[in-house]
């Protein structure tokens, strides 16, 4: 009996020590969690989450300072993925930070642009080209649709245009699966 106890206790000690040593020896470098979170965030870099970009928000989530439902461009799906990754409860997008919108790109009205470069400075991903006093243009492929360039423009010449569906990016729809006859009348059931 006593031998058994000693053996078990000894075993526990040895295993615990090994585990502890392993965690010190094989500690992962850097913080992969931040990168994993950052990989889920849409990289729009719009700051709607309250942080100056996606990476800072990712760091804040990893540090437990921010909630997972503050990124409107990531939308519902983004929240779900974060909840999955972090093993947290899903929660709907926090409307304080904005609502999910269809993806848009900024377009500069080239006739009105005065070449002030203010939008260039605002753009987090260098999607605007142009030089002082010359007309500016947005490279649509690079624009993330963050809208940060819209307010600084003194001539009010930047519009957000939703990305149009084209033959190239058109998607096949989810096939309708019409097995259910009528929509579930849950409220009635609850009342009963």
């Amino acid at each position: 009996m006593i031998t058994a106890l000693i053996v078990m206790a000894g075993l526990a000690l040895v295993l615990g020590a090994t585990l502890g040593a392993a965690s010190v020896l094989f500690r992962t470098q850097g913080d992969p969690l931040v990168d994993k979170i950052d990989a889920i965030l849409p990289q729009t870099q719009c700051g709607q989450c309250g942080y100056p970009g996606c990476k800072p928000y990712a760091t804040a989530i990893a540090g437990g300072e921010a909630d997972i439902n503050q990124c409107p461009p990531g939308g519902d799906e983004g929240v779900r993925k974060l909840a999955d990754l972090l093993g947290r409860e899903y929660k709907p997008l926090n409307a304080e930070h904005g609502i999910e919108k269809p993806k848009s790109v900024a377009v500069i009205d080239e006739a009105t642009c005065i070449g002030c470069t203010l939008c260039i400075q605002a753009c987090p991903v260098d999607a605007i080209v142009g030089a002082a006093k010359q007309m500016h243009t947005i490279v649509a492929d690079l624009c993330t649709g963050c809208e940060l360039c819209v307010p600084p423009c003194p001539a009010d010449c930047i519009d957000m245009v939703p990305v149009a569906e084209t033959v190239e990016n058109w998607k096949w729809r989810y096939p309708v699966f019409e097995l259910k006859v009528q929509p579930a009348t849950l409220p009635a059931k609850e009342a009963a």
């Binding site: 002030c116 470069t117 400075q121 260098d126 080209v129 030089a131 002082a132 003194p154």
Partner: peptide, 21 residues
Amino acid sequence: LIEAAMARARAQKEAVAAKNT
């Protein structure tokens, strides 16, 4: 606003025009 912008733009003209492309 525009004047302010221009002033700032002058200062950064070279850097901006050349480097973000």
